[in-house]
Design a protein around this nucleic acid. Structure first.
Length: 227
DNA sequence: GACTGATCATGG
DNA sequence: CCATGATCAGTC
């Protein structure tokens, strides 16, 4: 699948997936999926990337570089409530004191996102019971951006003055900083306020499920708690 | 049932 | 090790 030429083409392709199960999508693409469970983490995202012509790969870039658009699948229950938080990107603290929201990779990634909800009734649901729902584009509203910027500033501020280990996933109204590593013993470099180097478990930025649930509800034009 | 900390797969 | 794609699973 070649990359979409523009946003319209991407939109058409994404809407073309609506109603397909993950199993049928994989079948059409000739992809084999392992059974659902721990070993299949991330497979739906890779599948949808391929289906839409995302450049993918493991480079630090948007999924659609020419369009500046990021692709995210969103597991939701039958009511449209997000089942999981959403990973955004790795967090680097080389210059926590000077890194601003405006210059952050988090902001760049979230500036334009194509969300593809995947209805997953429960975690035991087989691929055939997980269906692609209506996708939607999101560009943060002024209030979205303010919430994100506030959390970002608070998180980075704490890292700058107290170190990354002082931040738990409990911080942040909508944006979290959490471990993001192969195992709990993985290490990544950290630099403290006075320049001392040490290491801690690698972290990543995540969007809370309540936040993404709200984005979906807004896109559907329904209150987040309506039936 | 929501949430946090830990974990799984793949490529460079 | 870095990055991408996320979800698992024990605890609150």
């Amino acid at each position: 699948v070649t990359p979409p030429r523009d946003e319209h083409e991407l939109r058409v392709r994404a809407f073309g997936l609506v109603g397909h199960s993950v199993a049928s999508l994989a079948s059409h693409l000739g992809m084999h999926l392992p059974p659902t469970g721990a070993t299949s983490k991330g497979k739906v995202g890779e599948l949808v990337e391929r289906a839409l012509g995302a450049t993918g790969g493991s480079r630090a870039a948007h999924d659609f570089p020419d369009l500046g658009i990021e692709l995210k699948t969103l597991p939701v229950d039958a009511r449209g409530v997000a089942r999981e938080s959403t990973y955004v990107c790795r967090a680097s603290f080389e210059a926590a004191e000077t890194l601003t929201w405006e210059r952050s990779w988090v902001r760049a990634k979230l500036s334009h996102v194509l969300w593809v909800p995947v209805v997953t009734p429960d975690k035991a649901s087989p691929w055939s019971a997980r269906q692609i729902a209506e996708p939607f584009f999101w560009e943060p509203s002024a209030s979205d951006a303010a919430l994100l910027a506030d959390d970002f500033a608070e998180l980075l501020g704490t890292v700058a003055v107290a170190g990354v280990d002082a931040v738990s996933a409990r911080r942040g109204k909508v944006l979290q900083l959490r471990p993001k590593a192969p195992t709990g013993s993985a290490r990544a470099r950290t630099v403290s306020e006075d320049g001392d180097e040490s290491s801690s478990v690698p972290r990543g930025f995540y969007l809370r499920a309540a936040f993404t649930t709200g984005l979906l509800a807004r896109a559907r034009g329904t209150p987040a708690d309506s039936p």
